[in-house]
Design a protein around this nucleic acid. Structure first.
Lengths: 154, 154
DNA sequence: CTTTCTCTGACTAATACTGACCTTAGTTAA
DNA sequence: TTAACTAAGGTCAGTATTAGTCAGAGAAAG
């Protein structure tokens, strides 16, 4: 059967498939009304199902003319490995794991040696500026940079 | 779609693009009349979208023959401009400042609308997953992503 | 029975827009 | 000369319209 959240998830994914642009604009209040639930239920669905790791981008704006935009990145087979690695990054990431991921991505030619070098430099620089939460920041940066590369090339 | 403010913003930017001089002179009352709104709506658009932080200069004069002049600050080199903006990011970065930076980089065509969208989405997603240090993480991510783009293009 | 997932509602925050009232600059006429 | 009039634009507080957050209740799974 599936929960309400499942239905809302399916509805949004259907709209995404039908859109030419791989992105869809929603009205939170309207959608909540359609499914006869509270608006915050929409946020629940978005934060649990339409995450960056699953290849979704969510933007929103409040106020008059506000909206929620959900975008989907579909990547080719050549990026499957990269996506898998990206998804394997948890809330924290140590240096050793980062190196393993970079090496793997370079081997699979998802990133160039130069890109690899740039990423390493950036992450090291940023991580060195904080005293706490280095692992968390590293995970965040790696996810973001890799996702950015995949998003643009995929 | 988009709000009235969005349309007025687009209209002014179009006029700016079409002008040889990177500046355009408006009549507040006339513009308000064209868009069927109150004159103060024009001020709202100017103060929220055409700020110095985004690279715009607004001058005006009251009384008979009054006017509003909007200029787009001519930056010598968009690459230099991007570097300057990057360096202006301190240890912390709030959402408003991030939007200003992105808007400016997009207006100067340092980043594409697509890249802008991706960056915003990634940053929002990542920042939403932490409970503390949102401003610090936002600064880190913006520095990293922008640096990465510039590094590859420059 | 305990843990994890769903769902709700009260409170919060951001953005858009309006209208009443204010300020400034030029023009005219006593 | 200067007071009065006319013709701009400015400010600000209030209202309307969205969406976001978070703690806790309820349901499902292990």
């Amino acid at each position: 059967m599936g929960t309400l959240a499942d239905h809302i998830e399916a509805y949004i994914k259907k709209m995404l498939r039908e859109s030419q642009t791989n992105s869809v604009e929603l009205s939170r209040a309207q959608l909540a009304d359609d499914f006869a639930c509270v608006p915050s239920q929409i946020n629940y669905v978005l934060t649990t199902r339409f995450t960056l790791e699953r290849g979704y981008l969510v933007e929103s704006r409040r106020g008059g003319g506000g909206y929620i935009r959900v975008g989907h990145v579909q990547v080719g087979d050549s990026f499957e490995h990269a996506i898998a690695l990206l998804q394997s990054i948890g809330p924290e990431l140590d240096e050793r794991s980062m190196e393993n991921i970079l090496a793997s991505l370079r081997d699979y030619q998802v990133i160039s040696p130069r890109e690899c070098q740039v990423i390493r430099g950036i992450v090291q620089q940023e991580v060195s500026t904080v005293s706490q939460g280095k692992e968390i920041l590293r995970a965040s940066l790696m996810r973001s940079l890799l996702f950015f590369i995949i998003k643009l090339e995929g």
